[in-house]
Design a protein around this nucleic acid. Sequence first.
RNA 1: GCGCCCGUAGCCCAACCGGUAGAGGCAGGUCACUUAAAAUGACCCCAGUGCGGGUUCGAAUCCCGCCGGGCGCACCA
Length: 881
Amino acid sequence: MSESTRYQPQAIEERWQQQWQAEGADATPVLNGSGDARAFYALSMFPYPSGNLHMGHVRNYVITDVIARVQRMRGCRVLHPMGWDAFGLPAENAAIERGVDPGAWTDRNIASMRAQLQRLGLSIDWNREVATCHSAYYRWTQWLFLELLQAGLAYQKDATVNWDPVDQTVLANEQVDSEGRSWRSGALVQKRKLRQWFLKITAYADQLLDDLPKLEGWPERVRTMQANWIGRSSGAELSFPVIDDDGRETGDTITVFTTRPDTLFGVSYVVLAPEHPLVARLTASEQAIPVEAFCDLVSRQSEQERTAEDRPKRGVPLGAWVRNPASGERIPLWIADYVLADYGTGAVMGVPAHDLRDFAFARHYDLPVRRVILPEGSEEQSLEGVAWTEPGVLIHSGRFDGLSSSQAKTAIAAAAEAEGWGRARTTYRLRDWLISRQRYWGCPIPVIHCESCGVVPVPAEQLPVELPRDVAFSGKGGSPLAQLESWWRVDCPCCGAPARRETDTMDTFMCSSWYFLRYSDPHNTALPFSREAVDAWLPVDQYVGGIEHAILHLLYSRFFTKVLRDRGLLGFDEPFARLLTQGMVQGITYKNPQSGRYIAPADVADPSDPRDPGSGEPLEVFYEKMSKSKHNGVDPAVVIGRYGADTARMFILFKAPPEKDLEWDDADVEGQFRFLQRLWRLVEGAVDRGLSLAAPHGPGGIRADSTTLVPDPASFSPADRELRRAVHTAIAAVSDDLEGDLQFNTAVSELMKLSNAMGEHLAAACEPVAQEALRSLLLLLAPFAPHLAEELWCQLGAGEAGSIHRQCWPVVDPAALVRDTVPLVIQVKGKVRGSLDVPADADRDTLEKLALASEIAAKWLEGKAPSRVIVVPGRLVNLVP
RNA sequence: GCGCCCGUAGCCCAACCGGUAGAGGCAGGUCACUUAAAAUGACCCCAGUGCGGGUUCGAAUCCCGCCGGGCGCACCA
């Protein structure tokens, strides 16, 4: 083989990337509203510009790129943009550590990552690129904040908030995991009382929950996670009046939240959180010392200690009493560590007979257990010593006796409402979104604090409020903005008096909650986006990104969309119609179980018997998310340098289904490269034999821009038929894999099958059939390996019909799939006993007759007639004796 | 504790509505080509679907119970 015909991906890929860029091949088509072509919006979650592309990015963007390319070939006008989630702490930390300007640092990273992305051959329209840290963008983030402010959805309040001691800023609840650690730094967060800005996402809690079932194109588990996070819980608020020793009401009231108002008559005590505001006032003097000691003890415990699963529940009586509003009973008031101040009302009613926690608490402190719910058809005595937490029928509940739990819930809430001691109430786990950050590198919150006018929004025409340059980054003493008096000292836009600019910046999740809207109209200088553009392109048809945003970004973006809809800025309810959450890319990881040290794969001499290069101890081998500290990362640039972008793309698509974790394996990458080489040789061989997709040489040929096959099917040889069947089977299978459930892994394997079949039959096929096969193979390959497909397309002389990426997706010819005979499996009593070749179009009766007449039947039925015959046309006949 | 997902060949992964368990790849083996090796090509080897029951003419697929792995939520009243 001569040098010139070797597959050399680097040269090919670079050449085509330059050409596509020169032609503007990836520009977004204009939407003219005439409806002649459907709009399709393919979107990847935009990256933080760390400067380094990692395999997770590659997987994300390649998946989206394949979708975009297929939709283009299907005739859609496709929007496939990219941008940068460019505010955030790494830039500011670089400024503190190395004295570089955060803006310049970020821009350099963007440039370098953009180049790395372009090397992957992604069909992205770079003219629509956005970076959230550029004032042309964050001007509109500020504008949208003012919209929220005007809508009453942005407000300030003093609150106990999560403080990240490493990143030196507060965090939203969503950004702290269940172990109380920061999503970014991993530090244990601390509680601080601060005045902060919040967005009233709770006002949309019901919509955010109730619209989840509409998101049919989302993974079930993401919807479940959001539902859990919102945590709607229906019940009632019930008020227990505080009474003195003589049973007179003191005027104070304890309001509890309960999901079980039906158990009201079973209340044997009421418990407050130790932080409840009424604790101090209600504590009897003789209980003051133990109560104070208990509160002190609880306050010194960390959140984690306090909420640990199986710790015993502790409490102290206040020496005060309340009256059950329904039964009139006198009930003791307690405080206990298992009641949380910030959920519900910070007070609960204790019903030991019907709640496991209350039961444990009552046992420990010898409080009475009163059964008021009886399981349907059960005896009261049978429930000694357990808490019945399921619904049942009410007993010992006065006028509510005999009602079912569900009837009683409604009836008791209604009675409470009518008599003024309570009401039906729904609570949520979801809290308002804390968006203030005490850091420099974020979007400034565009308000001014004035002594006399209060909080004054910066007038829209004065936006953007730009971040100051030439800031000193000491990393100490709080936000750099708060230390820059020349920046925060302003005049009040209302009264002109000296005032103070807000020095907190916004959570970066604000910037990413609307970027997908901006792509529809990225150069608009009058508005964040026009209503026409946003309604024409959105909702996003296919969103692709990591599961780590299941709650965070995806919930915030849904919230923004609903708010902007209510403000009349857009006309849809949900931003993302379909969501694909791609799995992690994992690297092979070697760990010494003795020392706990991670060993780089390069230092492992014999992978079949991995040992610590220092001590010789055997190593553990497993796959884990790629990271520097574990020495298990694979640099995309290295892979592309060695094999080319097409191999990297094909491998990553082929190795695992997109939503599953992918185990990186160098041997498999090699295998993928060999497949592309095989394709190269296949086409080279065809070119050498004079095959071409240029204008037809004679009658019967097909042109590159034609989808019809001219010659008479009757003239096809068996090889022609075999080849055509393989071609059209592949078209059908690949098309199917790219529709609905996206299964790129099986699509690639279909391409391999087709190339195997072509290797077998191409040489024997007639020219038009061979042309059809080559043409179809390259068209199917084009979204996956765009450079190689384009190159081979041109080598076959089809370039005159234009880029392969502008061609139509191939169409299945059902006639090519038809077979004369098909194998029919003969089962006897469900066991496979043999098979027959039968006419493909045979009906049930014929199949039954053929089966019964077969030697297989004769042998296994021993002459007896079967009692039952099951016929599955095209598959099998089952004879049951 | 509650809820969800996953267990198929040495490995990664397929298998439409229940219908012959294997498409594709990796690894391994044999042969051909070669002075030799690499590369390439041809062929081959390998599981009865985590375990136990059930439904069915027929179960990887549906149901029940376990085991193993992963994820989410969790004193939420």
